[in-house]
Amino acid sequence: MKYIYYPGCSLESTGISYDRSTRAVCRVLGLEMEDLEDWNCCGSTAYFAIDELLSLCFSGRNLALAEGQGGDLVAPCSACYTVLHKTNRYLKDYPDVRAKVGTALAAGGLSYHGGTKVRHLAEVILNDVGLEAIASRVQRNLHGLKVATYYGCQLVRPDVGFDHPEFPQSLGTLVEALGGEAVKFPLMSRCCGGGLIMSEEQIALGLLNKLLRSATDNGAQVMIAACPLCHLNLDAYQGKVNRKFGAQYNLPVLYFTQLIGLALGIDPQALGLDKNIIPATELLAAYV
């Protein structure tokens, strides 16, 4: 199986530790990822808000480039994943849209025939590598670590069938394979506010407060995420949530790849653990 890696813009900036930990973990797990050559932004939710056709063309360029390279397109960012997926869906369901996107891509010397399968990194690691193979490589058992598994929205919704859209289990089984404990976390797939953090911060902070309270009330010592925007909101804005709601959250938020990497014995620096705003070093000292 050939995998084409589509990091997405966030993994070059706010989510740089997701990129580092993904590359490090894939190396150890034997997942060979080839970068998508000269990828562009997927368009994200914001471009779709302004002009859906242009947004589909942005996404379509990536799908066409990936089709040329040949292989499954793997996105670690849930927003990229959903947008690329949605583009495939629209091109399949709406012939007129397919014709227009085709015309635009042709002007740039590209063509897309609908052959690029879009997958989320978490799904690839869980299904293609599998829990047994991961567990067999564990060097530092995460015994005693209580983890809130946060899926966010777009990893499990709208229609991708990777896990249950409201009460998914896969990251929980992953945590257990690493030796840790997945705590009860009823809001595991509720919204973090997404991009509204930039424009309607007060609304997003309210949603973040609910998530952080649900996780900490259930005894979580750490939260894992599978999306750079979820991570940014929960990590970088946690202080603001504390100030707004008079709370004292101090919950480190890791990418699920960082947690796997720790258990596999990868150096924390190589996993980008030093880049957290809410530091995880003290908590995880026992495991490194």
Partner: peptide, 20 residues
């Protein structure tokens, strides 16, 4: 991105097509 010219050609063409 390296091939910004290509992306801009695609965008310009799409803009002529009158939306979705």
């Amino acid at each position: 991105i390296k091939n910004q010219a290509q992306l801009q050609t695609i965008v310009r063409k799409a803009q002529e097509l009158g939306g979705i």
